[in-house]
Amino acid sequence: MTVLLEAKAVAKHFGGVKALRDVSLTIRQGEIYGLIGPNGAGKTTFFNCMTGLYIPDGGGFDFAGAPLVADAPHKAAERGIARTFQNIRLFANMTALENVMVGRHVRTAAGVLGAIFQNRATRAEEAAIRQRAEDLLHYVRIEDRADDLAKNLSYGDQRRLEIARALATEPRLLCLDEPAAGMNATETEELRDLIDGIRRDGTTILLIEHDVKLVMGLCDRVAVLDYGAMIIEDVPAVVQKDQRVIEAYLGA
């Protein structure tokens, strides 16, 4: 299988705290890759380094065969890395549909002059943006909430909307930061189906998750972080039985 993303000895520290110690891992095209670990293990920091929110202090990333120069977050999205946030970050006072339409920004081109003069190309592009956004809302099954403000959506729908917005950027790698946090069993089950569906439709997924059951059932391979260092990267069945992982979670 081809490698989509390769992290090479990524290091990040905040003052004296080493949040990431030379983390290396590879995500293959078409898989669901799980990244787990106890609170504060460095999962989100790894995410932020990859998506350009943080600049790593050491190491780097290769994405789709070329180095990922993630010095600005919008460049990561351009390259095809989309993400959701642990604490949902939607455009609260915009409608659900507008939120997804914003996601099309990076794949469209209309500028100020196009907007002012409303030439044919701009109008066609705008119609295509709207159509695609509607399709995506349908895809995550919240099309009936299209005209509601994002902040008025239920928690589960907000999670779905955030995923739809990320998908609108046409990512090759979709990174989900604890998508099941705060969800009940039914919602988690629905989310599981959604993530599985996205992978089947061809998008590689990196999943950070606390819900070990969800991760083990869904992921093809799992990496475990503890105190900023990776302790194992393998298929779920192996990871589950690993003594170091059990220690990390339960305490030695």
Binding site: H74, A76, E78, F85, R89, F91, A115, I129
Partner: peptide, 27 residues
């Protein structure tokens, strides 16, 4: 016209949440 355009939406996205705006690829 700006309000209902790609640029206008990007501005509103920055107003609502700058980090999320960056994450979806807005410069």
């Amino acid at each position: 016209r700006l309000q209902n355009s790609r640029i206008g939406r990007a501005w509103q996205a920055i107003r609502e949440d700058e980090i999320a705006a960056k994450a979806v690829g807005i410069n």
